[in-house]
Amino acid sequence: MWEYNDKVKDHFLNPRNAGEMKDADAVGETGSLSCGDALKLFLKINKSGRIVDASFMTFGCASAVASSSALTEIVKGMTLDDAEKLTNDDIADYLGGLPKEKMHCSVMGQDALRKAIRSYKGIEILAKPGNTICECFGVTDLEIIETVKQNNLKSAEDVTFYVKAGGGCGKCVQQIEKIVESILAQA
């Protein structure tokens, strides 16, 4: 059922900046059909490195559409340097919060934005660093560690909510638990 607040509903029912941008200066793509959600972000960037326009195309649930819509609203007018620092929390906060199980939608926004900016800056995006932990969703140990630290996650279930790892066949859940435990032990 609807577990979304009015702002999330509004951005789903009336998405801002939806659609392809033919003359985009930068494009960032994340997600896939098999994952169940995907975002293609388009940016128009001026000579001084400021984002002057943004649009998106999204396949996914209501919160994926709303997160994408929010992302485009947030980044318009930002410098690339500031935009690069944007986190998934900023997107979720802009929407007044997302259900915990849907936080991965905001993570998708952060990921697409960084990919767009890096490709614009000519930074080659190499294969994902680290070792793949979750085969279903292609998530590596380094991604899990970064997400756990950035969002103060406490359990393997939290990790699934944020980056989906462990949410498919479930074989890697124990490995994820170990990673989370080792980070909590260090903290």
């Binding site: 609807w2 029912l13 396949f59 996914g60 209501a62 559409v65």
Partner: peptide, 13 residues
């Protein structure tokens, strides 16, 4: 090429 939850929520409307 579309996702079920989104469809259901629009149907709900």
């Amino acid at each position: 090429a579309v996702e079920g939850e989104s469809i259901l929520l629009l149907m709900d409307q």
